[in-house]
Amino acid sequence: MSADQLVFWIFAPIAVAGAIGMLLSRNAVHAALFLVVNLFCIAVMYLLLEAPFLFAVQIIVYAGAIMVLFLFVIMLLGVDRGDDLREPLIGQRPLAVILAAAFVVEIAVAVRAGIGFATMAPEGFDAVNRDGNARALARVLFREYFLPFEVTSLLLIVAAVAAMVLAHRRARAVTQAELERLGLLEPPREEAPSP
């Protein structure tokens, strides 16, 4: 077994275990941390697939930014009670498990028919990745995919504006009487009687 395959067999079970841990944990914070474990393992898979740029992006964007955002919202909402375990639909959960297992079997059959379990990654990726993966990726991104890249910036602006609009709390109008009651405002003083 080569070094690559050894790394795969170390990190693939950890990735699956992280996903299962996320499914089963009652506490939302624990689930988020399990998901971080899973995302790190997927980042290692990118390294095995000779995509070091995506490895870095995965760790910075997913494990860093997105999961911090998740944890921030979990803390903000104070979600510390677990899900209640009543089943609103009888038999929904066993059915979901069966369907997920069927999906895995389906993928296995499709992979076996399509590429076969023994097909190795072909040689010659070094030529594709010449001058380094980041530079090669930039060459593709800024030539063939330039228009989608620009549209992406529009998407990010729309998302930022949408977040502000959705999460903005409108301030209630405060009347002058309330301010006076709180003592924040001097009551209007009467005109001094002129002698």
Binding site: S2, D4, Q5, F8, A12, A15, V16, A19, I20, M22, L23, N38, I42, M45, L48, L49, Q92, R93, A96, V97, L99, A100, A101, F103, V104, I107, A108, V111, R112, I115, G116, F117, A118, T119, M120, A121
Partner: peptide, 23 residues
């Protein structure tokens, strides 16, 4: 070298677990 099918299978398993979570 690692067989590509292993990665695709891992991806399928993770996708199934994710959809299980949604359900």
């Amino acid at each position: 070298r690692t067989p590509i099918a292993w990665f695709v299978m891992l991806s399928g398993i993770l996708f199934a677990l994710g959809s299980l979570g949604v359900l």
